[in-house]
């Protein structure tokens, strides 16, 4: 079970880093910004996996905080980007 979860963690991490391609490539700023939201979502999943792997329930709090505050950067981007005005 532990090995399985670790392999899942590794796979998820690879997916996360594959999202870098969109950040580098993304033609518009919105593409790059949405890739960070992908990072946030996958980060929540990874934190929960790490919480199970290390048997530390406090990491669920970290996942909670991340899930709450990851959209903040997106909101700031929408507010401060010139196109939306």
């Amino acid at each position: 079970m532990i090995t399985y979860l670790t392999v899942v963690t590794g796979l998820l991490l690879s997916m996360l880093l594959a999202g870098l391609w969109r950040v580098m490539r993304g033609p518009t700023e919105s593409d790059r910004m949405l890739a960070t939201q992908l990072f946030g979502t996958a980060g929540v999943a990874l934190l929960m996996l790490l919480a199970v792997l290390q048997q530390q329930a406090a990491l669920l709090n970290a996942a909670l905080v991340l899930a709450l505050l990851a959209p903040l950067t997106l909101v700031a981007f929408v507010r401060f980007s010139g196109e939306s005005r």
Binding site: L68, L69, L72, V75, A76, R79
Partner: peptide, 10 residues
């Protein structure tokens, strides 16, 4: 961060 969200609504 909650306050920042509030401020971002303008």
């Amino acid at each position: 961060a909650a306050g920042v969200a509030l401020a971002l609504t303008e």
